[in-house]
C-alpha cells in the first residue's frame, strides 16, 4: 500500500507553491507555468530520467536532479534556471548530436523534431566535441515502419509506450553506455517480430526521425501524440 498523498509547500525559483507529495518537480512546475525543458519525458508514460535535459538544482543537494523523475518534498527549494543548468542542458544536447548521425536536411523529421527544437531552445549552434560518426543500423524490414539507429537518442519512449500502453513489449534496450541500442524482440529484424502489433504507437511518440512511417520523404514525418492523452482520459472515465 502506498502512503496517501499529502499537501505540502515548496519553492520553485523563489516562488512558494503548493503541491501533492505524489507529484514530480516537473508536474508542479508545469502547473505553475514554469518551463523546464524535457526530451525523454512524455506525459502519459512513466518517467525514467534518461536524457538529463530536465535537470534542476535543489538546495541542499550537491547533485543535479531530473525534474521529471524527482518527487517533491515539503520545504524543498528548487532552482529551474541558472547559468550552470543552461550549460549542462546544452552539453546534453551536444552529446546527443555527437553520438548519432544527425543530418537534418535529409531527415524525415526535419522541422518536426524534438531534438532539433531542443538544440534551438538551448542555443546549441555547434558542437564543442567531435562527431563520432558511428556506423549504425537501419532496419527497414517492417512492412510499414523504418527504424534508424543513426537518429535514436535512447529516450526509450518507444520501449515504454509499447510495454505500458500497447502491452506488447516489443522494444527493449540492448548493450550499455555508448553501445546501447533499442531492439525489437530478441534483436530480430522488426519485420520478423512476433510481438509487434503494428499499432504505430512507438513511431508516434518517438521524438526524432529514428522511427518513421515507411515511404516518407525528407521533412514529411509529423508525429501525432494526442492518443496518449485520450487513452488516459478514457481510462479515468472507466474507473
Amino acid at each position: 500500500m502506498s502512503t496517501p498523498s499529502r499537501v505540502i509547500t515548496l519553492t520553485l525559483d523563489d516562488r512558494e507553491v503548493g503541491a501533492h507529495t505524489d507529484q514530480t518537480i516537473l508536474e508542479v512546475a508545469r502547473e505553475n507555468g514554469i518551463v523546464i525543458p524535457t526530451l525523454c519525458h512524455l506525459e502519459g508514460l512513466l518517467p525514467i530520467g534518461a536524457c538529463r535535459i530536465c535537470l534542476v538544482e535543489v538546495v541542499g543537494s550537491n547533485k543535479l536532479l531530473p525534474a521529471c523523475a524527482t518527487k517533491v518534498t515539503d520545504g524543498m527549494r528548487v532552482i529551474t534556471q541558472s547559468e550552470r543548468l543552461t550549460r549542462y542542458r546544452r552539453r546534453v544536447v551536444e552529446f546527443l548530436f555527437a553520438s548519432g548521425n544527425h543530418i537534418c536536411a535529409v531527415c524525415v523529421s526535419n522541422h518536426h523534431c524534438e531534438l532539433q527544437d531542443m538544440a534551438v531552445y538551448t542555443g546549441m549552434s555547434h558542437l564543442t566535441e567531435p562527431y563520432r560518426y558511428p556506423k549504425l543500423r537501419v532496419d527497414a524490414s517492417h512492412e510499414r515502419f523504418v527504424q534508424d539507429d543513426n537518429r535514436c537518442i535512447l529516450c526509450q519512449r518507444c520501449v515504454r509506450v509499447c510495454a505500458e500502453i500497447e502491452g506488447a513489449h516489443t522494444w527493449d534496450v540492448m548493450g550499455r553506455g555508448i553501445e546501447a541500442r533499442v531492439i525489437t524482440d530478441l534483436n530480430q529484424p522488426w519485420g520478423e517480430s512476433d510481438t509487434c502489433t503494428s499499432c504505430s504507437k512507438c513511431v508516434q511518440v518517438c521524438p526524432t526521425g529514428a522511427l518513421s512511417i515507411k515511404g516518407m520523404a525528407a521533412a514529411e514525418m509529423k508525429k501525432r501524440k494526442h492518443f496518449l492523452a485520450q487513452y488516459w482520459t478514457l481510462k479515468e472515465e472507466e474507473s
Binding site: A105, V106, V108, V138, A140, V146, D148, K214, G215, M216, A217, A218, A219
Partner: peptide, 14 residues
Amino acid sequence: EGRPYTEMPALTAR
C-alpha cells in the same frame, strides 16, 4: 548506401 530510397531526392539534392 544503406539509406532508405525515400531519402535519395533530398540526399542527392545535396
